[in-house]
Simulated assay, not measured.
Amino acid sequence: MPLTIETTTPDDNLRAEIRALAVAVERADGSPPLSDQTLSQLGSHAVSHVIARAGDALAGYAQLDGDGLEIAAQPDAIGPLLDAVAERDVLLIWSHGGRSRLVAVFQARGFTAIRELHQLRRPLDSEIPIPPVADGVLVRTFVPGRDDAAWLALNAAAFAAHAEQGQWTQADLDARMAESWFDADGFLLAERGDTLLGFHWTKVHPDGSGEVYVLGVAPDAQGLGLGAALLARGLSHLQSRGCPEVLLYVDGDNAAAMRLYERDGFTRFGRDVQWRTVSSL
């Protein structure tokens, strides 16, 4: 059946279709095809949404955000979706996981792999030692509405060199807090007086696995051991929620973070790759 391509802003029904398609692709490929950022923007007018249908069935979805693109699609819809956005100055596209159906298409079209994001995992089947924090430092949970601005400032400082994470806005934070998985009890903050020094935001997936969603420390708080202290407390929280294992993502060129996590028993499990289109070389 021939595909029809349409640009539209998804309504509630289409958003449900996109999420169902993403789940089907994940079951087949082993990794979610769409990031949390993309899922949080399914109803946004600030990004472009392109869908492919085979009759009444949704065969593919692509979201274009600036120069970034993500795709969840049946195999025969991948090429048409790429063609549909080819004139929109697409530069960077992610494939998620080692079995992503996108990889063969990207390679066939001559795209270049430019960045790796490693997924690490470890079991939560043993007691987690909790290291002490520095004098005067308190670890508490995030309070929505009260801590938003201070956390956004800390996040920007901790990830100043990170293209995606360091540019979060209140809208990005609000979108995550609106997700069904958000749990303020799993969003840990380290502070001294009225100053936030670090944080560990955890997530529990529908299958019960936990995630180190974001872990960050202020540049001027480096050397206090907060990374390890917050990591351990977050893992302990996930363990208390019954998570059998925990996963996280770390850039391939972030050697310091890789050492921290591997010291805590994490091992490499999967890999996401960011590709650059031929036209942008």
Rank of each mutant, 00 (worst) to 15 (best):
residue 226 L to G: 01
residue 264 D to K: 13
residue 215 L to N: 03
residue 28 A to W: 05
residue 209 S to M: 11
residue 41 Q to H: 10
residue 253 D to T: 09
residue 8 T to F: 12
residue 117 L to S: 10
residue 272 D to R: 13
residue 22 A to C: 04
residue 86 A to Y: 11
residue 265 G to F: 05
residue 137 V to W: 02
residue 243 C to F: 00
residue 112 T to E: 15
residue 268 R to S: 15
residue 214 V to G: 10
residue 144 P to D: 07
residue 189 L to Q: 02
residue 159 F to E: 06
residue 16 A to R: 10
residue 70 E to F: 10
residue 85 V to T: 12
residue 276 R to F: 04
residue 215 L to I: 04
residue 17 E to T: 06
residue 4 T to M: 11
residue 88 R to F: 04
residue 225 G to Q: 12
residue 41 Q to L: 13
residue 21 L to A: 13
residue 279 S to W: 11
residue 190 A to W: 00
residue 155 N to H: 07
residue 62 A to L: 09
residue 270 G to N: 15
residue 280 S to G: 15
residue 201 W to R: 00
residue 248 L to S: 02
residue 196 L to I: 05
residue 24 A to E: 12
residue 63 Q to K: 08
residue 40 S to C: 12
residue 220 D to Q: 14
residue 249 Y to P: 01
residue 21 L to H: 13
residue 2 P to N: 15
residue 163 A to V: 14
residue 106 F to G: 14
residue 77 A to E: 05
residue 154 L to I: 05
residue 131 P to Y: 00
residue 183 D to M: 02
residue 263 R to T: 09
residue 210 G to Q: 03
residue 73 A to S: 09
residue 206 P to S: 02
residue 211 E to G: 07
residue 145 G to L: 08
residue 34 L to W: 03
residue 266 F to S: 06
residue 244 P to K: 08
residue 7 T to N: 12
residue 97 G to Y: 04
residue 233 R to A: 06
residue 112 T to P: 08
residue 130 I to G: 03
residue 117 L to Y: 07
residue 238 L to F: 07
residue 52 A to Y: 07
residue 95 S to A: 15
residue 112 T to W: 11
residue 91 L to D: 15
residue 62 A to M: 05
residue 100 S to N: 12
residue 265 G to N: 09
residue 119 Q to F: 08
residue 269 F to Y: 15
residue 12 D to P: 10
residue 151 W to C: 00
residue 165 Q to N: 08
residue 20 A to K: 07
residue 109 R to G: 10
residue 13 N to R: 15
residue 63 Q to L: 15
residue 48 S to E: 14
residue 1 M to N: 15
residue 119 Q to A: 13
residue 217 V to M: 08
residue 59 A to N: 07
residue 242 G to I: 02
residue 34 L to I: 05
residue 4 T to A: 13
residue 79 G to I: 04
residue 22 A to K: 04
residue 277 T to M: 03
residue 200 H to E: 00
residue 220 D to C: 09
residue 135 D to C: 13
residue 274 Q to R: 08
residue 160 A to E: 12
residue 206 P to Q: 01
residue 137 V to G: 10
residue 165 Q to S: 10
residue 101 R to H: 14
residue 13 N to C: 11
residue 279 S to M: 12
residue 161 A to Y: 06
residue 246 V to M: 02
residue 241 R to L: 14
residue 66 G to N: 13
residue 157 A to Y: 11
residue 248 L to I: 02
residue 86 A to P: 12
residue 245 E to S: 06
residue 117 L to D: 09
residue 238 L to H: 06
residue 166 G to C: 02
residue 70 E to L: 08
residue 24 A to N: 06
residue 36 D to I: 05
residue 211 E to V: 05
residue 104 A to R: 15
residue 229 A to T: 04
residue 139 V to C: 01
residue 74 Q to S: 03
residue 144 P to I: 03
residue 9 T to G: 03
residue 243 C to M: 00
residue 71 I to Q: 07
residue 171 A to S: 14
residue 234 G to V: 01
residue 133 V to T: 07
residue 88 R to A: 11
residue 246 V to R: 02
residue 56 D to N: 14
residue 153 A to W: 07
